[in-house]
């Protein structure tokens, strides 16, 4: 199994405050890697260093290397726009654009000029919606507002939007934390389906969710990576006492 992302000695600072310490982690291709840990442990911050989403926050500083396919994304001269196209992101709160369902998915295709013509664009939108398991539910109302969808559908629309630009890695920041159990289950099924073609990194507060969908799990605490192991090992016999205490609910 090849490693898609390779992070070494990553430090992260908000101004003077250090949020991540010496993180080194290999993320294998076409697998699901879950990040777990108590609130404020840095798992979301770390996730956002992987597509340089943190760049939009003033006063941050990153040290160390994040290699994607062997190329350091923090090298000067990195095309952040191209990076974000390659590394898609789905957020905690579904954030559809104030546009139609179709235009939401088409947006990324349009700005990146991926499509050849109108027919190609329509096909790509349909494919993305289909891959996000949303097509059947929206095919008759593509040109209505995205805000008319349910919370779970909106989140799958955001996934479709991310898929439409043909990323290789998908980062998910607690994608189901605001959804009901049925909608959550659909997202989880989708994650498992998508890993056949994409490398997925998912941050979750829900440990059962991490257990259900991920191949490997990384446990963070106080800005440090405590343990990373195959998920079944992590949840049956973790190496670290700290991990054991966290996943058995002794703190956090």
């Amino acid at each position: 199994m090849q490693n898609k992302l390779s992070i070494s000695n990553l430090d992260f600072f908000y101004g003077k405050a250090q949020a991540l310490y010496e993180i080194s982690l290999e993320i294998p291709e076409r697998q699901v890697m879950a990040f777990i840990g108590p609130s404020g442990c840095g798992k979301s911050t770390f996730l956002r260093t992987l597509n340089r989403m943190n760049d939009t926050i003033p006063g941050i500083r990153v040290e160390g290397d994040v290699l994607i396919d062997g190329k350091n994304i923090y090298e000067s001269g990195t095309d952040v726009v191209a990076l974000r196209r390659k590394v898609g992101m789905v957020f905690q709160k579904s954030n559809p654009f104030p546009k139609t369902i179709f235009e939401n998915v088409a947006y990324g295709i349009r700005i990146n000029r991926i499509h050849k013509d109108k027919t190609d664009l329509e096909m790509r939108v349909e494919k993305a919606l289909y891959d996000a398991a949303l097509w059947d539910e929206v095919k008759d109302r593509l040109h209505t507002s995205a805000f008319g969808l349910s919370g779970g559908q909106q989140q799958r629309l955001c996934i479709a939007r991310a898929l439409a630009v043909q990323p290789e890695v998908i980062l998910m920041d607690e994608p189901a934390s605001a959804l009901d159990p049925i909608a959550t289950q659909k997202i989880e099924e989708l994650v498992v389906e998508l890993k056949k073609r994409y490398t997925i990194v998912i941050v979750t507060h829900n440990m059962q969710q991490a257990a259900r969908v991920s191949d490997k799990t990384a446990f963070f605490m106080l800005g440090k990576l405590v343990e990373v192991n195959p998920t079944q090992k992590m949840f049956t016999s973790p190496d670290e006492k700290l991990t054991e205490d966290y996943i058995t609910g002794r703190f956090g």
């Binding site: 440990m207 059962q208 949840f235 049956t236 016999s237 996943i247 058995t248």
Partner: peptide
């Protein structure tokens, strides 16, 4: 209770 790790074992 959905035990994990040692609890599960």
């Amino acid at each position: 209770q959905q035990p994990a790790a040692h609890d599960l074992r």
